[in-house]
Amino acid sequence: MQIFPCPFCGERNETEFHFAGELGKIRPDTTADVEADAWARYLYTQRNEKGHVREVWMHIPCAELFVLERDSVTMDVLGSHPLRKPPK
């Protein structure tokens, strides 16, 4: 069982977390025309990298959505920070 760091709660057991996607997907502006290819890339294309990855995870109990950096080979956690803008 892995230990992930929630940026707010701190370290918790992996059973409290949910993978939400790779970091860096930008939703196309759908009020303008969006090419079918661009939309398909947004929906379905994953980088699926080996090694250092940046992913979005949710800490389910506190609902924090955050960026988790980890190594997809060694499973080492390299860091985490909130996805939202920094607090005022």
Partner: peptide, 16 residues
């Protein structure tokens, strides 16, 4: 029911 550690503080009382 949970991986608890009294020596490891957490900012939240929520957990699974």
């Amino acid at each position: 029911g949970a991986e608890l550690n009294l020596d490891k503080p957490s900012a939240s009382v929520m957990r699974r």
